[in-house]
């Protein structure tokens, strides 16, 4: 078995837990959009479990169907039943800090496998996930039914946010195929000359922060701005892709910290903590966000080249 086959096995596994989520979404009578939500997870489950055997245009069509379901507001998380508080309390009493063990195993094992074997980071994550799940099951002494519900509950409560990163990466691929980067590079090169390392780094990091502020989402900004600015102005000038990506994304997070558009992070606490000042959280974050953006620029300039 080569690494591709092992990875395919893990994708089938993901497909199966998505189908679990689909079954439970269809059954969730309290959800006004249960058919659409069930279809959403079913489509994804099919793509992950059997996509290798489907023609690409069928998968493309299914993605467009998901887009249409979303457009008509037919995908809703609904009221996913939370865990049983009594079991939570009892088991926390019994296991205490041991409950962190599976997460620790997951993080450490996946890094070890990717560093010290030829299997790579992805299979590392897969093996470590299964390993840590087994440890969690043994520790909590649960049966298949509980595992099933814990899995479908987690997947369902992700909602569409769970698939957004992959869709954004797909957008990046379509941008590349369409040659979006070349167009923006030509446009911006009229103002900023490509080739100057420091200018390129500043342009990319600041653009990541500003566009994240406008969009409220650093992942979306990353797909767009990295294709448009990061690649032509930094990576194509000899910048290391890993450094550019890691520090570019954090530059985006600096933007997240100062924008009311990121409501989950900056407005939710205002409501939750009953604060008077709508921008109170942002004001506390702004100095750190500005300093960290400068730190990203300096780090990228020195580490990427």
């Amino acid at each position: 078995m080569n690494t591709k086959d092992i990875l395919e096995f893990f994708y089938i596994f993901i497909g199966i837990i998505m189908i679990f989520a689909s079954i439970e979404s269809f059954r969730d009578k309290s959800n006004s959009a249960r058919i659409g939500t069930g279809l959403f997870w079913l489509i994804l489950g099919i793509i992950f479990a059997t996509g290798k055997y489907l023609p690409n245009f069928v998968i493309g069509l299914l993605i467009v169907v998901i887009g249409i379901l979303a457009l008509f507001k037919q995908i809703k998380v609904g009221k996913v039943k939370g865990p049983d508080e009594k079991i939570e309390k009892q088991s926390a009493k019994r296991l205490g800090a041991w409950l962190f063990l599976p997460s620790l195993v997951l993080a450490v094992l996946s890094i070890l496998i990717s560093q010290f074997t030829k299997l790579g980071g992805l299979i590392g994550i897969g093996v470590a996930s299964v390993g840590s799940l087994i440890i969690a099951i043994i520790m909590t002494k649960i049966n298949f039914k509980t595992t099933y519900h814990d899995s479908e509950r987690m997947v369902r409560s992700m909602g569409t946010a769970g698939i957004l990163p992959q869709l954004l990466a797909t957008l990046g691929a379509v941008f590349t195929a369409a040659g979006v980067g070349q167009v923006t590079a030509k446009m911006i090169a009229g103002i900023f000359p490509a080739g100057n390392h420091l200018l390129g780094v500043i342009l990319y990091c600041v653009a990541m922060a500003v566009f994240t502020m406008i969009m409220g989402n650093a992942f979306a900004a990353f797909a767009v701005i990295t294709a448009a600015i990061g690649i032509p102005f930094v990576v194509a000038q000899g910048g290391s892709p890993a450094v550019v990506a890691a520090l570019g994304m954090v530059s985006g997070y600096c933007g997240t910290l100062v924008t009311p558009m990121a409501a989950n992070f900056n407005s939710l606490p205002v409501a939750l903590l009953e604060m008077d000042d709508n921008l109170g959280v942002i004001k506390q974050q702004a100095p750190i966000a500005i300093i960290m953006l400068i730190v990203q620029i300096v780090l990228m300039y020195f580490l990427a080249f």
Partner: peptide
């Protein structure tokens, strides 16, 4: 559609 499917 083929490009979307392949990229996804």
């Amino acid at each position: 559609l083929t490009l979307i499917g392949k990229s996804f």
